[in-house]
């Protein structure tokens, strides 16, 4: 649309400027300088019309990029294919979240089930959860090196503290009637924990973890930027630098799809894990 902003010139004929190509977008100032010098050299003047930069590629371009992003070989041999980048991101998430769960789930349950544990651990965790995980980036790199370990650590830090608090709360919400029923049936502490508290909160715990896994994905972008940039974030920054915005959007869509599909899958699996939550079978 003419008259609007349009800081760029879209080249329709490169003229005597060697590095211009048809369809290329260049800055107005630069275009004028080049046109001037071409004229002075007595060569053909480049022709172009005012245009806007393309940050928002057309849908069909993005659709094509969804395919070409996978088929385009990496610019340098040392770099990764797109699917390798995605896989790398997934492994970072997996390990970060796994460590978080291995420590956070038991600690959360203990905090929720035993008041002394909660009084000991929760003030510290309440405090620690206000540390922004990205702030640990430099520290993590200094301690763990520049490769994957600090990235896994960022995912861990980003999810662990929240996880303990959320799960402690879920544990506290367990209906006391189950605990009381178990007590009248002669359950000791260990049996209460293993046979009542843990199975009692399991479906809710699983839901909590699904939500927390979503958090892990938000920390992924930060995690992948520290040390040597990697994974899907590296791909996005790289493509943005080349102004391949169609590729950037393709990568974003892929990210969204991975998140959505994995959550859908986890939800389906949840229904298998917890058969008692199914509705009654119509048999009253």
């Amino acid at each position: 649309m003419p008259g609007l902003w349009q800081p760029l010139i879209k080249i329709s004929s490169p003229g005597g400027v060697a590095f211009y190509q048809e369809g290329m977008l260049v800055e107005k100032d630069q275009f004028e300088t080049q046109a001037q010098s071409a004229m002075e050299r007595g060569e053909a003047v480049p022709i172009g019309s005012p245009a806007n930069p393309v940050y928002l590629p057309a849908p069909h371009e993005v659709a094509t990029a969804l395919y070409t992003s996978f088929t385009t070989p990496p610019a340098r041999r040392s770099e990764m294919w797109f699917h390798q980048s995605i896989w790398h991101s997934i492994t970072i998430i997996f390990w970060g979240f796994l460590y978080s769960c291995l420590l956070g789930v038991p600690l959360g349950i203990l905090c929720g089930a035993y008041k002394p544990v909660s009084q000991l651990a929760e003030p510290f965790i309440e405090f620690a959860r206000y540390f922004p995980a990205p702030a640990f980036g430099a520290l993590a790199v200094a301690i763990l090196g520049i490769h994957d370990a600090p990235k896994v650590a960022i995912i861990f830090i980003g999810t662990f503290f929240q996880m303990v608090l959320v799960i402690a709360n879920t544990t506290r919400r367990l209906d006391t009637r189950y605990v009381e029923a178990a007590l009248t049936l002669g359950a000791n502490r260990l049996r209460l924990l293993w046979q009542v508290v843990v199975p009692g909160i399991l479906p809710d715990l699983y839901k909590d973890l699904r939500i927390l896994l979503g958090w892990a994905w938000t920390y992924l972008i930060v995690a992948e930027l520290i040390g040597t940039s990697s994974g899907i974030t590296w791909f996005i920054t790289q493509q943005a630098r080349y102004k391949n915005f169609d590729m950037v959007f393709a990568a974003l869509i892929i990210l969204g799809l991975i998140g959505l599909l994995s959550d859908l899958l986890l939800e389906r699996m949840g229904r298998r894990f917890f058969p008692w939550q199914r509705e009654r079978l119509g048999n009253s």
Binding site: Y178, A181, T184, P199, G200, Q277
Partner: peptide, 12 residues
Amino acid sequence: MVFQQFSLFPWL
């Protein structure tokens, strides 16, 4: 003890 609120363990 039998409670008023149904208190069977739903996971069993």
